[in-house]
Computed example of a mutant assay.
Amino acid sequence: MGESLQSIVNLVDPYTLQILVNIGIAIVLALGLNVITGITGQLSLGHAAFMSIGAFTSAVITLRTGLPFSANLLLSGLITAFVGAAIGYPILRLTGDYLAICTLGFAEIVKVVFLNLDITNKALGLSVPPARSPIPMPIIVWVVAILSIIFVCFMKESRFGRALKAIRDDEIAAEAMGINIARYKVQSFAVGSFLAGVGGCLYAHFLSYINPSDFGFLKSVDILSMVVLGGLGSIAGTVFGASILAAAPEFLRFMSQYRMLVYGGLLVFLMVFRPNGLLGGINFTDLVLRAIGRKPATAEVNERHRK
C-alpha cells in the first residue's frame, strides 16, 4: 500500500508537490487560529508559538522514542493543547488589544526559551528524521487538512460552537444566558492550539529541519492574514485565504523583500471594499449541501418562517 501511494505522489512535480503540502499545512494552522479569533473573537498574535511547540515536541519525540507517526502527531497536538489551555486560563481574562499584546509576548518568550534549550539544539535548530509511517507525508498532510476542515465544520455548528459565536458577538449577553465564558474561552484556545500543534508537527517532518527563528512574529502575522483575508469565522474563507497566501510566496518570489508590504496593501484593500473578507458570511456546510443538491438548513428555516 505504501509503495502504491508513493507512486501516486511521484506523479506530481516536486515543486508543485511542495506548494500543495504547504497549502495543506497552512489550512490546518489557519483553521486553528480561526477557532480562536474568527469564531470566538479573541485576537491572538502568538499562534506561531503553539506551532513551534508542536514542531519541537514532535521532533524530540521522533529523536528520542520509536513512536509511530500517528501517535506522535496526536501527542504533539495534545501537549500543545495543554500548554494553550494553561496559558489561556490567565490571559483570556483580557480582551482586545491587551490580549493581543499578551499572546505576542508569550510567543516571544517561547521563541527565546527554544533558542536557549539544549534539547532543541539552541540556535542551531534540529534536523528531523522522516516520519515513521508507510503513508507518504504529502498524503498525510492532506488527510489531516481534510479531517481538520470536517472537525471545525461540525464544531462550529454544534452547541459548543454556537456558544463560542455568542461570546464573540456579545460576552455580557452570553454570560446572562448562562454561558460560562471563562471555560468556553479556555476550551476554544485549547482546540485552536491543538490544531496549531498538529500543523507544527507536519511542518517539522515535511521540511526535515526546524529552527526557533522560523516561528517568529511574522509567522503569526502570516497565519492571521490567511484568516482575515478569507473572512473571520468563515471556514470556506479560511481554506481559501490559506491556499492563496501559502502559494503567494512562490508567485511573489521576484519581490520577496516586499512580500509583507503586498500583504498589508491587500488587507487595507479588503477593509475598504470587503470588510468581512473574501468569503465572509459564507457557510462551508451550506456550500457542501448545495453541491450535492440539498437545501441548507438556513434556507429551510427561512422557508418555514415565510410560511
Rank of each mutant, 00 (worst) to 15 (best):
R64N: 11
T65C: 04
T65N: 06
G66L: 00
L67D: 05
S70M: 14
N72Y: 05
L73D: 06
L74Q: 03
S76P: 06
S76D: 06
T80A: 06
T80M: 09
T80V: 12
F82M: 14
G84V: 09
A85T: 06
I87L: 15
I87K: 06
G88M: 11
G88L: 07
Y89Q: 13
Y89C: 09
P90D: 06
R93M: 02
L94S: 11
G96D: 10
D97C: 01
D97Q: 09
D97F: 09
L99A: 10
A100V: 03
A100H: 03
A100G: 09
I101E: 02
I101H: 07
I101V: 14
C102A: 15
C102E: 02
C102L: 12
L104E: 04
G105I: 12
G105K: 07
F106D: 02
F106M: 11
A107T: 01
I109H: 10
V112G: 01
V112C: 06
F114Q: 02
F114R: 00
L115P: 00
L115D: 12
L117E: 08
L117D: 03
D118S: 13
I119S: 11
I119P: 07
N121Q: 12
K122T: 09
K122Q: 12
L126Y: 01
S127L: 15
V128W: 05
P129W: 09
P130K: 11
P130L: 12
P130A: 15
R132C: 08
S133C: 15
S133L: 12
S133A: 13
I135F: 03
I135Q: 07
P136S: 04
P136F: 04
P136G: 04
P136Y: 03
M137A: 08
M137I: 12
P138N: 04
I139R: 05
I140V: 13
I140W: 03
V141I: 12
V141H: 09
V144Y: 05
V144A: 00
V144W: 09
I146C: 08
I146Q: 04
L147K: 02
L147Y: 05
I150T: 13
I150A: 14
F151H: 06
C153W: 09
K156V: 13
S158G: 03
R159W: 03
F160H: 02
G161E: 04
R162A: 09
A163V: 04
A163K: 06
L164S: 02
L164N: 03
L164V: 11
K165P: 00
A166V: 05
A166R: 00
R168V: 07
R168S: 08
D169C: 02
D169F: 07
D169K: 00
D170L: 05
D170N: 15
D170H: 07
E171N: 01
E171T: 12
I172N: 09
A173R: 00
A173S: 10
A173D: 06
A174Q: 01
A174Y: 08
M177H: 10
M177K: 00
I181Y: 10
